[in-house]
Write a protein that binds this DNA or RNA. Structure first.
Lengths: 255, 255
DNA sequence: AGCCTTAAAATTATCGATAAAAAATAATTT
DNA sequence: AAATTATTTTTTATCGATAATTTTAAGGCT
């Protein structure tokens, strides 16, 4: 038995280059160790639907769940709030933002506009390395789809991660960083809705057929062909949800 | 002498509807009292150049300066970091983001793309009340310009505030909230550069002549005329800085 | 019972203190 | 003396405790 058991318990600090071993960070969040750790886990629970839309985020509960204290937790929540990923009311605390068809439409339409332009710029500026990354990510996405196992939470997570990577790779050559960051934020916000669709019985890889033509037109530098295809792809969730609502009456899962 | 002098000193909580008496909040930040208070003041010091680009933001100093403790301060900084208004390096703390021609171009170009589309949508969806607000804000902006006093910090602040309000009013009728929020964020980020230009001797109201034609075309619902005018207006700072750099050699104020 | 007032419990937002790192300084070796 | 290592100082990031507030429950009144 070592003596340091009685030391004040704290989060461990990673060694300088120890953060994310498997390639560049997927999420663009920065901050202190405990803070980003909490942020990632909250975000993961948000998108996976563990934290339900509209639910209250009680600091005490989160502190226990993530094993950290109030300061880094609030830091994480503040950062998520700034990106519209959690709601904050003064002196009423934080909550999971409700989901609605209106918001989904808002996110989709904005993404159609912005990500369309971003792709156009990427096509105009991309080099061979970018082309390679796009192809590589399309390949890995296909492989992920092949080993599909809809029942498995792990597979869903892995698929979603690779899908995210693929879309990032498409835009990587766009020289406007602020525009890319905004696209990424919209993508992350839409993740909750994609997951929701899967719960409603839609295939996890419904719009997967669209990826190949998008890549083909993109690498052939045919922007006028690629951009509309990407836009179609982006609006799949809205159309699917609308379809569902028409069949099953007004908003069971959407409030 | 009252007895409660020895009570633990804390920030005062405002009564329920006491927050911002002069109309809707100009900045879209949410959070707890001390946190937003700190946020507003940091942002103000950032845009006014009190906090220099690249400068370190030491928590201890900020705690003393703003009279609050670490938790709400860090919350504010985290929120600003999420919007790109401060930089954060893990275990190296926060700093004021450096300014550069590259970033200014990035912000301008992104804003040209996004705010152009937002204005087009506003023109398509705006009603009479929106038209009224646009006119009202143009009027107030003109009045602010009339009582111009370039030496005065108060006037510069008031002018900048009204200029911000005017641009928000133009886009208010755009139905895509995420798009509008992004435009607002880009506007706020560009504020530092506008202020910098004034320090370099450029007139505080250089591009003011553009406001009237923009409003005229907008209210007449001539989007194809209004959007290019707005785009021209947005790129004024980049062109001015480029001009300055050509005359005065490479980047004295921009690193 | 339904409504207002008051007390208790729960929760948020904040503070002060402190462990872990990083940066600055002094000491030591080559 | 220059470079390296040890030491001190400064700063960051975190924690535990607590005042102010909101929410829930209880008690009294018409």
């Amino acid at each position: 038995m070592t003596a340091d058991i009685h030391k004040k318990q704290r989060v461990m600090w990673p060694k300088p280059g120890e953060s994310s071993p498997g390639g560049g960070a997927l999420f663009p969040f920065a901050g202190s160790v405990a803070s980003v750790e909490a942020l990632q886990r909250i975000l993961s629970d948000l998108t996976r639907g563990v934290l339900h839309p509209g639910a209250k985020l009680k600091v005490r509960e989160l502190i226990e769940r993530y094993g950290i204290s109030a300061t880094p937790l609030r830091e994480a929540l503040a950062q998520l709030a700034a990106r519209g990923l959690v709601l904050v009311e003064d002196r009423k605390g934080f909550r999971v933002p409700p989901v609605s068809l209106e918001q989904l439409q808002d996110l989709s339409q904005s993404r159609v506009i912005v990500e369309g332009e971003a792709l156009r710029l990427a096509i105009a500026h991309g080099d061979a390395a970018w082309e390679g990354e796009v192809l590589s990510n399309l390949h890995q996405l296909r492989r992920e789809i092949e080993r599909r196992d809809s029942a498995s939470q792990e597979w869903l997570d892995a698929y979603e991660r690779q899908h995210h990577r693929f879309h990032k790779a498409l835009l990587a050559a766009c020289p406007l960083h602020s525009l890319k960051d905004f696209c990424d934020n919209l993508y992350i916000q839409m993740t909750r809705y994609r997951r929701l669709l899967k719960e409603l019985g839609f295939s996890a890889a419904a719009g997967n057929g669209a990826h190949e033509p998008i890549v083909e037109a993109t690498l052939a530098r045919r922007g006028d062909e690629a951009v509309p295809l990407l836009r179609e792809h982006i609006t799949i969730p809205v159309r699917a949800i609308r379809e569902y609502l028409e069949k099953n009456g007004t908003g069971v899962p959407l409030r």
